[in-house]
Design a protein around this nucleic acid. Structure first.
Lengths: 210, 210
DNA sequence: TAACTTATGTGATATTAATCACAAAGTAAT
DNA sequence: ATTACTTTGTGATTAATATCACATAAGTTA
C-alpha cells in the first residue's frame, strides 16, 4: 500500500500527510463490478483510488441509469466527501469497472487535515473542481450532442480510463450507461464501424480511431 | 452591507469571520441582466450572494447555451471558488436574473480562512455539495425528462428563485435556457395552459399550479 | 394612424430516437 | 449434437423534437 500511495500521491501530499494516511487508511481491493457506494449510502469516509477504474452513475425513481463519469487512479469521489463530512446521503452509485485498489480514509480525519495540510486543502478543492467539470462535460454531451457523438465519446473516454484500445462490453451495457436502448446502440455502432472508427466483435469493441 | 450579511449569514459564519468579511469584502450591486462572470474568466475572488438571483449557464463551441442552475441569497458560486483558488479558468457564465447584491471576497483570504474557521470550511464544502447536487438534478432533467416536464420544472423552479408567481420572460428566452427552439416552447406552453397549470400573457407567464 | 418591431400561434415536413418484433449468430450446458 | 441462452442485426412503426414558413397580435415610434 505504501508503495502505490507513494507512486501516485507523493507529488500531491506532504510527507507527514502520507504517513498519516498509511496509519489510518484502510486498504481495500475491489473485484470487477463490485459495488463501492450505493444510492442513499451514508459514507463513513472517502475512497482514494490507487489503481483501477470506478464508474459513477445516477439513477432516477424508475430505476433508470445514466453514467456521470469515471474515476481513475489519483481521483477521489467528491460526492462521498460531502456525504461523509456532513453525514448526508450520497446521491450516486459507484461500481468498479475493473479490479481496483482503494484506500479508505475515515471521515474523522477529513476536517482535521483541512486545517493541518495545505496539500490536503488543495487536493479536496481540486477534486471538487475536477468533478464539477466532469459533470459539466456530461451536461454538454446530453444537451448539445446527438446519440452517435455521445456514443463515440463514451467509447473513447472509457478506453482511455481502462487503458485499453478495446472494450469488453455488450451493446446492452452501453445502452444502460447512455440511457438509451440496445437497438439504438447497435445501429449507431454499426454506423461507426462503417465509418472505420471501430471494429465490432461479440462482447468486444475495438477502437481504431481516437 | 453589515446588516444584510448578518441577516443571511450570521447563522452560517462565526462572529470573527463576519468581521473579517466586512473588512475585506467588496460590496457590489448588480443590475438586472448584468454579467457577473463570463466563460474563461479568471476569478480574483468569489461572490457571496446577499440578495437577488443569478443564472449560471454553460455554452458550447457553437455559442449554444444551456441553463445549469440558479443561485439565490446565501449561495456562492462553487465554480468561481475553484477558479479563484487554483488560478484556473471559469467554465460558466453568470448573469443577474434580477437586481442583486453580492459581496466579493478576495481570493487571498479563501485558503487562509479554511485554516482559521470551521464555519468557513463547512460553508465551502456545503456549497460544493449543493452545486454537485444541482448539477445532478440538471443531468436528471436532461436524461430522464421530456421537454414538457423540463419546461414545467423550469417555470416552477424559476418562480421560486425569483420569489414571484409570474415570470416576465419571452418564449425565446426560455428556449435559450432549455436549449430548444422557440416554436417548441410556445407549443408546450400552450399545452400547459390547456392543462390549467399556467396562464399565458405577452411577456409574462402566470403559474397557477406548483 | 401608419409603419415597424417584437412576440406568439400554428400547419407542414423532416429528423432523431424509442419501441416492437423477430431472425440469425455465437456461446455454454447437458 | 441438441438445446437453451445471450448477443447482435435489421425492418417497420411510432413518438418526440427540430425546422421552415408564414400569419396574427400586441406594443412602439414616427
Amino acid at each position: 500500500m505504501r508503495e502505490k500511495l507513494e507512486k501516485y500521491y507523493s507529488f500531491v501530499f506532504e510527507k507527514e500527510l502520507l504517513d498519516e494516511i498509511v496509519q489510518v487508511g484502510v486498504y481495500k481491493k475491489l473485484r470487477e463490478n463490485e459495488l463501492l457506494v450505493d444510492l442513499g449510502d451514508k459514507m463513513k469516509g472517502v475512497p482514494l483510488l490507487l489503481e483501477g477504474a470506478i464508474k459513477i452513475v445516477r439513477e432516477d425513481k424508475n430505476g433508470e441509469e445514466i453514467l456521470l463519469y469515471f474515476l481513475e487512479r489519483g481521483d477521489t469521489c467528491a460526492s462521498s466527501f460531502a456525504s461523509a463530512i456532513s453525514n448526508g446521503k450520497c446521491g450516486i452509485r459507484a461500481i468498479a469497472e475493473k479490479e481496483s485498489e482503494i484506500i479508505f480514509l475515515p471521515k474523522e480525519k477529513l476536517d482535521e487535515w483541512l486545517v493541518k495540510y495545505k496539500s490536503w486543502r488543495n487536493f479536496v478543492i481540486e477534486s471538487y473542481n475536477i468533478r464539477l467539470n466532469e459533470m459539466m462535460e456530461t451536461i454538454d454531451s446530453l444537451a448539445f450532442m446527438r446519440m452517435n457523438e455521445r456514443l463515440y465519446k463514451y467509447l473513447t473516454d472509457k478506453a482511455q480510463i481502462m487503458r485499453e484500445t478495446s472494450l469488453n462490453t455488450t451493446h446492452q451495457d452501453i445502452a444502460y450507461d447512455l440511457h438509451t436502448s440496445r437497438v439504438v446502440v447497435s445501429r449507431l455502432l454499426k454506423q461507426l464501424e462503417n465509418e472505420g472508427k471501430i471494429k465490432l466483435h461479440r462482447n468486444k469493441i475495438e477502437i481504431l480511431e481516437f
